[in-house]
Simulated scan of single mutants.
Amino acid sequence: MKPVQAELQEVIYNSRNPTRRWLHTTRKNWIDNAIERLSFEGMTACEIGPGSCIYLPKLAKKAARLYVADVESQHLAVARSYSDTSNKITVLEDDISASKLPENYFDLILFSEVIEHIPDTALVLNNIVSRLKVGGVLILSTPQKYSFMELACKIAFMPGVIGLVRKIYKEPILETGHINLQTGREMRKHFSDAGLSVVEAYKCGLYIPLFSEFFGEFSVKVQRYIESKLRYTALNHILWTQCYILKRQG
Rank of each mutant, 00 (worst) to 15 (best):
V134C: 09
T19R: 01
L108K: 07
A77M: 08
L8T: 04
L230T: 07
P3K: 12
E72I: 14
S112L: 02
K2H: 08
D193C: 10
S15G: 01
R188L: 12
K100C: 09
N104G: 06
A69L: 10
K221D: 13
V68T: 04
N14W: 00
T90E: 12
G136L: 00
L235A: 10
R188H: 10
I48F: 05
I128H: 05
R37L: 14
P159D: 11
I118H: 08
L206P: 03
L138Q: 02
C46N: 12
G163C: 10
I54S: 09
G177E: 08
T85D: 08
I96M: 12
I238P: 00
P3W: 02
L92N: 02
E10L: 06
E72N: 15
P172H: 06
Q5P: 08
A34W: 04
L206F: 01
Q223T: 14
C204R: 05
L246E: 03
V165Q: 09
A98S: 15
L196G: 01
S99M: 11
Y202L: 07
F111Q: 02
F211P: 03
E171G: 02
Y55S: 04
L230G: 08
K88W: 03
L108C: 08
I173A: 00
C46Y: 05
N17Y: 00
N87K: 14
V222S: 05
I54L: 09
T44E: 09
S97P: 10
S228H: 14
V68W: 01
I162N: 04
S130F: 03
R131K: 15
F191Q: 02
G184E: 10
D70N: 13
K189N: 10
E10F: 03
V114N: 01
V11M: 02
K28A: 10
L76H: 02
G195E: 09
L59Y: 12
P209A: 13
T241W: 04
E103L: 12
I109H: 00
L108A: 04
D95M: 11
N17C: 00
F40E: 12
L23A: 03
D32C: 08
A45Y: 02
S81P: 05
S97Q: 15
H178K: 04
R20Q: 01
T241D: 09
V71N: 06
V4P: 04
L76G: 01
L132I: 07
